[in-house]
Amino acid sequence: MNYWLIKSEPNTYSWDDFVKLKRDHWDGVRNYQARNNMQAMKKGDLALFYHSVNEKSVVGIAEVVKEFYPDPTTDDDRWVVVDVVPKEKLKKPVTLAQIKEDKRLENMVLVKNSRLSVQPVRKEEFDIVVGMGS
């Protein structure tokens, strides 16, 4: 199993919006590195759901339920989506500031490249962040 972090602007698409839908495709990614990460996602992988912009915090856990396929929001075949479902809301959000303060997370992609919208997370990092949100 692999672990990921997926970002969304909460005023555009929040965790609560995601939960209401129960399942959705993760679309709109227009960055090659993020796209490549989506192409590496496998069914059953888990992803930290991150509210970007003003909130800058991990708020939940999503599960990949369908591997990549063409993004239905564009005719450009370079872009893909994966299907995800909400698995669990964290009891408390884990802020970017908290993540940056934790020495165990200093090499996390979120700390090194905070702008990347879909990024890999090491299992130990995933477990630490989830623990911080418990």
Rank of each mutant, 00 (worst) to 15 (best):
L116H: 02
S52I: 02
L5G: 01
E101R: 13
W4I: 00
P70Y: 06
D76E: 07
K91L: 14
V129Y: 04
R30I: 02
L21F: 12
R122K: 15
P120Q: 06
V129H: 05
V121F: 04
E124Y: 14
D17E: 13
N37L: 03
D17G: 09
V82H: 03
I128M: 11
K103F: 08
D127S: 09
I61N: 03
N11E: 15
T73V: 12
K42Y: 04
N2I: 05
I61T: 06
D77Y: 09
Y32A: 13
Y50M: 03
S114K: 10
V121Y: 03
F126W: 06
D16W: 06
P93M: 00
L105N: 01
D17A: 09
N54C: 04
Q39D: 05
L48Q: 00
K87G: 08
H51K: 03
M38T: 04
D24I: 09
L96W: 00
A34R: 03
V129L: 10
T12D: 12
N113S: 10
K43D: 05
F68Q: 09
H51Q: 04
E125S: 03
R104M: 09
S57W: 04
R104Q: 14
D75F: 10
M108D: 04
V130D: 09
V85D: 02
N107W: 04
E9M: 10
T95G: 00
L48W: 00
R122Q: 14
Y3S: 07
T73E: 13
L46Q: 12
R35L: 12
H51G: 02
H51W: 01
T95A: 00
T95D: 00
D76R: 03
V65T: 15
L46E: 11
S14L: 04
K87I: 14
E9T: 05
E9F: 03
Q119M: 15
V94K: 02
K87H: 07
V82S: 03
Y32M: 11
E9N: 10
N11Y: 08
R30M: 03
M108T: 05
D77E: 15
K91W: 04
K43A: 12
W15Q: 00
K22S: 15
E124D: 15
I128Y: 06
K42C: 11
V84K: 00
M108Y: 01
W79H: 06
L116I: 14
N37T: 15
V80Q: 11
S52F: 02
V19F: 01
A40L: 13
P120L: 06
E67H: 05
K100R: 15
D16T: 13
K22C: 07
P72K: 02
V58C: 12
D16Y: 13
R30H: 10
R35Y: 04
L5C: 07
A40Q: 13
K89T: 14
L48M: 04
K56L: 14
K42T: 07
L5W: 01
V82F: 03
F49V: 10
R30D: 05
E67M: 08
K112I: 14
L48R: 00
A40H: 11
I128L: 11
K7L: 01
E106I: 11
D71S: 02
Y32S: 11
R122L: 15
D127M: 14
R104G: 09
N36G: 12
P93L: 01
K22H: 10
N31V: 09
E125C: 02
N36L: 11
